[in-house]
Amino acid sequence: MIKKVEMLITERRIIALDTVELTLKNRHISQTARPGQFLHILVEGQTLRRPLSIAAIDKEAETVTVLFKINGSGTKKLSEYQKGMYLDVLGPNGNRFPIENDDKTILLIGGGIGVPPMYFLGSHLVNQGKKVISILGFQSADHVFYEKEFQALGRTIIVTNDGSYGEKGFVTDALLMIDDFDCYYTCGPIPMLQAVTAKLSDCSGFISLEERMGCGIGACFACVIPTNDHCGYKKICKDGPVFHSKEVAL
């Protein structure tokens, strides 16, 4: 159930180049959020809220962790919020990753700011006894984050565009290093999702879309995407952000 709440910033960290991690406290969201969902955050001076994927929850501490990259005036303003301040938040929003199945080995593929929701999902899968393999793509060494956190979940391959850290290339290049898996989940920019779904067209998978949004609850049509069956459109904020890899046209 989506609620409008105030969330206290309990921690703020710069974890990579232009990448900020916020830990936010709220009982309702920390107890109800599921992997794949996001928070819709109001930033002072901005008309539209900012959708941020959930990277982790701590039910005992009643906290939710989100990450974002500074890439505009809104995220720049959000990066200036400090520990002890409050945020106006709608959440948890969107649908979640479907994970109630018999798959034993799961491949996670995250690119840039699409990495955080993969960590929330991976932590949940490991707690279910699943084997997790992760491929994480970044622009360069300065942009890499959460490597140790993912390594604690299972085998992790880091890829950078310029080869300054880990393997050189794109996440699709690293697929050649993976022998076998039952299902994949991926989140990142559209070109990456297009390349991944094309490369893994014969595999079962789910994608999570990053998108600018208006209302964030399905009342407007600011974040629609056409379906592959040519029967209309899906709203990313309400019907997504998670879709089956063959459900929507990227």
Results as ranks from 00 to 15, higher is better:
1 M>Y: 14
2 I>E: 03
7 M>G: 05
9 I>A: 07
10 T>I: 14
12 R>D: 03
15 I>C: 06
18 D>W: 05
19 T>A: 03
21 E>D: 03
23 T>A: 11
23 T>L: 08
24 L>I: 01
24 L>G: 02
28 H>T: 02
29 I>V: 10
29 I>A: 06
29 I>W: 12
30 S>I: 02
32 T>I: 13
32 T>Y: 06
34 R>V: 09
37 Q>W: 02
38 F>P: 01
45 G>I: 00
47 T>C: 12
49 R>W: 04
50 R>I: 12
50 R>T: 06
51 P>H: 01
54 I>H: 11
55 A>T: 00
56 A>E: 13
60 E>A: 15
64 V>Q: 08
65 T>S: 05
66 V>Y: 09
69 K>W: 10
74 G>M: 12
75 T>H: 13
78 L>Y: 03
79 S>F: 09
80 E>W: 10
88 D>G: 08
90 L>P: 01
92 P>S: 02
95 N>D: 10
95 N>E: 10
105 T>W: 11
108 L>K: 04
111 G>T: 00
116 P>W: 06
116 P>A: 04
116 P>T: 02
120 F>T: 01
123 S>L: 13
125 L>P: 09
126 V>D: 01
128 Q>P: 00
131 K>N: 14
132 V>H: 08
133 I>A: 08
138 F>E: 00
138 F>Y: 13
144 V>T: 06
145 F>H: 06
149 E>H: 09
150 F>S: 07
151 Q>W: 07
152 A>I: 01
158 I>P: 09
160 T>A: 12
166 G>V: 07
167 E>A: 15
173 D>C: 10
174 A>T: 10
176 L>T: 12
180 D>K: 13
181 F>T: 02
181 F>A: 04
182 D>T: 01
183 C>H: 10
185 Y>G: 07
187 C>G: 05
193 L>N: 12
197 T>V: 15
197 T>S: 15
197 T>K: 09
198 A>N: 15
198 A>R: 15
200 L>W: 09
202 D>N: 12
209 L>R: 08
209 L>Q: 07
211 E>M: 14
214 G>I: 00
219 A>P: 00
219 A>L: 13
220 C>K: 04
223 C>A: 07
230 H>T: 11
232 G>F: 14
233 Y>P: 00
233 Y>L: 11
233 Y>K: 07
235 K>V: 06
239 D>I: 04
240 G>V: 04
241 P>Q: 06
242 V>P: 10
243 F>I: 02
245 S>G: 05
